[in-house]
Design a binder for these strands. Structure first.
Lengths: 305, 305
DNA sequence: ATGATACATGACCCCACAGTCATGTTCCGC
DNA sequence: GCGGAACATGACTGTGGGGTCATGTATCAT
């Protein structure tokens, strides 16, 4: 039935793998990352696939080129196959199964990384791959099967995705004892009084803080602008800055550091967020061990949230 | 991610297509159908795949060799990919999509064939392939994705399959006017009186009839043993035999033949059967046009049942 | 306009692999 | 235990295609 199809000139597993790479990277250039040979190869291989199928796989209207819907469709089908094949091979050589987990950098570092570490230690037989993507790309990647499970905000999950019950966590202030000795509830006034390390740009929480300060006629005393929560945590570690971090940061970033106090926020400053583990049903159907991994992750993360 | 996997020596689309063929045919021998070259090729290609995956794909305990569970798993994954690729290619060249329909020979000839004919005439753009398999093989083939939809007995569907509401039909007696001029309800006594063309072997309905006759102290007058319902219908057409056929046979086998009467059976002889269209959810998800085809088939067949 | 970025193309090598043919081996049924 | 069915294997060939290099050509940002 498929003998003829498989035998078409210009159709091969390598070309399909190339298509998958371009699909994940987003463009030929991203996928070839500086290697001119690879760029050349990818360009031609995708052109050859297009000749086979008689349909454009790359949208050539604007550069860098993105995949067309047909390109994504083919890439997804190929990836599904490769994943089954990869699983089978790993199972046969009794090696670890590969699980790809997506989330923002902060969540990876402070929740997923320790959780996966713990799982590997207790169960073994799993290799985790972390993908740090923004939330819209995470959703796409989940739907395309590029990642197996993601830890994302509750409000970001689309109806087509399965997900766990939500965990809610609050932002908390982390203040070095060198700056303030009392561990009482943080008041709005301290936004102007303490030297804050904050995230650069216009994140939701940053805007929220500035609004609260303005309402009180004061100004957020942002003396250090960081580009990630990890940097904020590092700043706090120095003892010279106070910072706002998710409350679960205390487990990961300040474990055993008694020079930093975690202080709850006063009512008006509370800022809660909800997280869920989300995945595509079809991924679990094709690779049933994912179900166990997701459940184990859920339990692990639940201990910290 | 999959570049390395795709590049493994011994891994290729042709080999996977070969594996699919063997999966559908059941064994290497069946798949190569007398061609010694093909036999040689299939044997080696599967061995090469086994080397790649480090797992037995053929169960070599008894001949002819069947696929192992791992072999079926790989074949199924490959077939799913090939089907998406095939669809994409056909869509691109604006050609008909391929739909594989399975059922017993009788149902194909008297229900599916005419139904598909009608669909093709009105809608076009679909190529039907009929597979005549026994019911257990039909279920397997559905689950493996080898066939897209099957018309089977209601009681044969497994929970993993989606299916339509059941249609119920009765067996009816078809009697040439040359043998009996009255079109009244058929009585048990006539089992001994009329010259019956019946299915050979020990089919459920055949056994049922013989039991009923024995209860009445008579014997089923089986003067012609046929190996298919079609042969029974042909026998009835000659005017020299009476036969039991599904009541929908009147549309297909005896259209415009006024020399044959359809006679209902007396209460004790009634023998009803239920049919459903069954398919695998995953197939519809991967190839969404199947949904439309199945619905159209359902409507068509519903007109006759 | 003008680099710079991003992709295409042509020419080349070399090897892996599909396919063929002949023959060997294993296993099943009787 | 024997014949045949079912699969394996070894040897060979031609070619497609992966990979590399050098260079060409669009498109984008400024």
């Amino acid at each position: 039935m498929f003998r003829q199809l498989a035998h078409l000139s210009g159709f091969s597993l390598e070309r399909l793998a190339s298509l998958c790479e371009v699909a994940e990277a987003g463009s030929i250039g991203q996928a070839s990352r500086g290697d001119a040979n690879r760029q050349s190869l990818l360009s031609r291989q995708i052109a050859e696939l297009e000749a086979v199928f008689g349909v454009a796989l790359l949208a050539r209207q604007s550069r860098p080129f993105r995949l067309t819907p047909e390109g994504r469709e083919l890439a997804q089908a190929a990836r599904q196959f490769f994943q089954v094949a990869d699983d089978l091979q790993r199972r046969a050589e009794n090696a670890a199964q590969r699980v790809v987990i997506g989330a923002g950098e902060t969540l990876i570092q402070w929740l997923l990384f320790p959780a996966c570490e713990a799982l590997q230690r207790q169960a073994g037989k799993v290799v985790f791959t972390f993908k740090n993507l923004d939330s819209s790309r995470l959703i796409e990647a989940l739907q395309q099967g590029e990642i197996d499970v993601a830890l994302i905000r509750r409000e970001d999950v689309t109806p087509s995705l399965a997900h766990t019950e939500a965990w809610t966590y609050a932002q908390a202030a982390f203040v070095p004892k060198a700056l303030c000795r009392s561990a009482t509830v943080l008041k709005v006034e301290e936004l102007a009084a303490l030297p804050w390390a904050v995230l650069e740009g216009r994140g939701h929480f940053r805007q929220f803080l500035e609004t609260k300060a303005r309402e009180r006629g004061i100004k957020l005393n942002a003396v250090l602008e960081c580009s990630s929560y990890t940097q904020v945590a590092m700043a706090v570690q120095t003892g010279r800055y106070a910072g706002f971090l998710p409350e679960f940061a205390k487990n990961a970033a300040f474990a055993g550091n008694s020079a930093v106090m975690q202080r709850p926020l006063e009512k008006g400053l509370r800022y809660d967020r909800s997280l869920v583990l989300a995945w595509r049903e079809a991924s679990v159907r094709n690779r049933s061990f994912l179900e166990k991994v997701i459940e184990a992750l859920r339990v692990r993360i639940g201990k910290w949230l």
